[in-house]
Design a protein around this nucleic acid. Structure first.
Lengths: 311, 311
DNA sequence: TCAAATAATTGACCTAGACAAAATAGGGTA
DNA sequence: TACCCTATTTTGTCTAGGTCAATTATTTGA
C-alpha cells in the first residue's frame, strides 16, 4: 500500500524504505513474524508513514535477511536479534557450513564477483567436459553453492550476483542433461518440490546424477501441491518420488508434508527426500529415504535396483 | 499448525482439508484475503478444528482456485463468489481468452491430457525445426499457453498436468536457445521478473525471440528485488531491462514497481514490460514500453536499433 | 552420563476495525 | 452519442493485541 508513490522523481536513487508487504516478499518472513519480533525483541524498528503503517529502512531489511539466513542454519532469533550487522557476519564466519574452499572453486567465485557471466558459463561447461557430469555436480556445483551462500552472508555478494550464478549453473546443467541419451530405463523417478519451495537447483542436480545412471526422470518443476504429486506419480507410473528441500524451507511443514505424501502414495512407490533443509537431519521418518548428499542418491539407486522391482 | 497430524494412517487417500496457511500456498490468496472474503461474502465457509482454526474442504479450495483465475482475467470477487463451481466454469467458457484453437494445437493438448510427456516433447521439438524458433514461440507456445489455461479452468486439466506441460516447453525452449550462437551483439538486454512473480515461461519466450534477433540476453531468472535489478543492469551494462508479468501478478504492485524501477535506472536504459497481466493494458506509464505480444518485441528491437545507440 | 520432566521460546493462528486505491456508476456537458 | 468529472461502492492490505501447540533448552533425578 505504501512502498512507492513516495517517488520524488528526482532521477537519482531513492526508494529508501519498504512497506511490510514488500519486506515479507524480500525476506521470506511473514507479516505476523515481523510484527511479533518488533513486539518481543524490539527489532526491527520500522518508522511509520502518514497513515501509521510500518516503513522499514533498507539497512534493517538487510539485517533481517541475514538473520533469516542464520536461522536457516539453526540459530534462534532471540539469541541473535540484538547483534549488529557486523557482529552477525562475524558470527557467521565462526560457523562456516562449507568445507574449506579449494583454489579452483575460488577462481569460479571470483568470476561471479566480477560479473563475468560468459566466462563463468564457459568455465563451468569446461569443467563438465573435464570431470564428467556426475563429478561436476558433486565436486563443483555442491561446494560452489555453499561458497556462494557464505559469500552472500558475508556481505560480499549481492542478490543479483547470486541470481546470475544460479542461472548460469542451471543453463550448464540443463544442457548437460539434454546430452544424456533419453533412457526408457528403470526406475521411473518423479522429481519436484513442495509448494513454497521455489529453489529448483537441487532438483536439477539430482536429475543430473539420476539421469546419468540411466534412470527415467520426469521433473514437474517446483511447487507441486501434494495431491497433485500423487496424481502425477500414478499417471507417470513412477517407482520413486524425489523431493528437494533448500535450507530456506519452512521447517514445520516438511515432516508433516512428507508423512502426508507417504500416506497418500501406494506402498510400492518410494519417497526420497534430499537437500540442505535442517529439518531433514533431525529424525528420519518411516518408510522414506533421506539423502544427506548427492552420493547418497547413487547409493540409493543401486540399492533399489538390487532389491528388484516391486519390493 | 493444523494441516496434518490428522493423519489416520489408514493407508487409503485422506487429507481431505487444509489449514489457512496451506490454502494460501495452494491458491495464492493471502490469509487476510481469505478471512475477509469469509466475512464479506460468506465464502469460503471453512470448518473449525478442535482449536477453533479454519479447516478448508478440498472442494472449496478448488472453487477458490477458479475464482482466482477468473479474477486474474479481470472479474471482481463480489460478482462471482456466490456462483457454484459449475456455473463458474460456464461463465469461463462464455469468456474465452484464447483464439479458436487450431486442430494442430488440439493435438498437442491431447498429448498433455494423456500425459505422453516424451511424445509431447518430441512433437514440440519437431515443430521448432519445422517453423523455426521465432514462429514456434509466437504461433505455437503462446496460443498453447492459452489453451492450457482454458482447459485448466474448465476442469479438464490437473495442476500436475500443467506442470508437466510447462516443464516440457521450458526444456524445448532452452535447448533451442542454446543452439543460437552466442552473440556479443547489441543491444544488451537484462531479463527478469519482480519478486512474487514466479512464472518464468514468459521470460524464456522473450529470450528466445530476442536471442534470435541477435540481441545479447542476460537472464536473472525470476523474482529479482528492484534495487538488484538496477545493480545488475549497471554491472552488465544493459541497454534494456525487460520484465515479464503473468496474468496472476498482483495488479497493484505492478505500476508502482515499474515507476520505481524507471526512477532508479539511468535515463539511457530502456524498460520494457510484457506479459498477460491485466494491469498492463490499462495505462501505459511514461518512459517505458509495454509489449502486448511477442511480435511487439521484435518491432521494439528494430526501433531501438533504428534510433541508434545512446538515445 | 543419560533420560525424563519442566520451563522458555517461537511463530502461526485468532478477532475485529480502519482506510487508501481502484473500479463502477451517475450526471452533466459538448 | 461520446466524453469527462465527481460520487459511491468495492476491495485488499494494514493496524492492534490475544491465544496456544509445538519445538528447543534447561533442570532434575536415577
Amino acid at each position: 500500500m505504501s512502498e512507492s508513490a513516495s517517488t520524488l522523481e528526482t532521477a537519482s536513487l531513492k526508494a529508501p524504505n519498504l512497506g511490510i508487504g514488500a519486506v515479507e516478499r524480500d525476506t521470506g518472513l511473514s507479516k505476523d513474524t515481523l510484527r511479533i519480533w518488533e513486539r518481543r525483541y524490539q527489532f526491527p524498528v520500522p518508522a511509520r508513514d502518514a497513515y501509521g503503517e510500518r516503513v522499514y529502512p533498507l539497512d534493517q531489511v538487510d539485517k533481517l535477511r541475514i538473520i533469516k539466513r542464520l536461522m536457516d542454519q539453526g540459530m534462534r532469533p532471540g539469541k541473535i536479534m540484538h547483534h549488529s550487522l557486523d557482529e552477525l557476519r562475524a558470527i557467521k564466519r565462526a560457523h562456516p557450513e562449507a568445507a574449506p574452499t579449494s583454489p579452483e572453486l575460488q577462481g569460479l567465485v571470483s568470476l561471479i564477483l566480477e560479473h563475468r557471466v560468459d566466462e563463468l558459463r564457459s568455465a563451468l561447461a569446461q569443467q563438465v567436459l573435464r570431470l564428467g557430469l556426475a563429478r561436476f555436480v558433486i565436486d563443483i556445483v555442491a561446494p560452489l553453492n555453499n561458497a556462494v551462500g557464505e559469500a552472500w552472508v558475508g556481505g560480499d555478494l549481492a542478490i543479483f550476483e547470486e541470481h546470475l550464478y544460479t542461472e548460469s549453473i542451471k543453463v550448464v546443467l540443463r544442457n548437460a542433461i539434454a546430452t544424456v541419451p533419453r533412457h526408457t530405463g528403470s526406475p521411473r523417478i518423479l522429481l519436484t518440490t513442495f509448494p513454497k519451495e521455489e529453489h529448483g537447483l537441487g532438483l536439477l542436480m539430482a536429475e543430473a546424477v539420476l539421469a546419468l545412471e540411466g534412470a527415467h526422470c520426469v521433473s514437474l518443476g517446483v511447487e507441486t501441491p501434494i495431491p497433485d504429486i500423487v496424481r502425477a506419480a500414478a499417471s507417470q507410473r513412477a517407482d520413486i518420488v524425489a523431493l528437494s528441500f533448500s535450507a530456506a524451507y519452512a521447517a514445520n511443514g516438511l515432516l508433516d508434508g512428507l508423512a502426508e505424501l507417504r500416506a497418500m502414495l501406494p506402498r510400492n512407490v518410494e519417497v526420497w527426500a534430499g537437500g540442505s533443509a535442517m529439518a531433514l537431519v533431525r529424525r528420519a521418518p518411516e518408510n522414506l529415504r533421506i539423502m544427506r548428499d548427492l552420493d547418497a542418491i547413487r547409493d540409493a539407486l543401486m540399492l533399489w535396483r538390487a532389491e528388484g522391482v516391486g519390493t
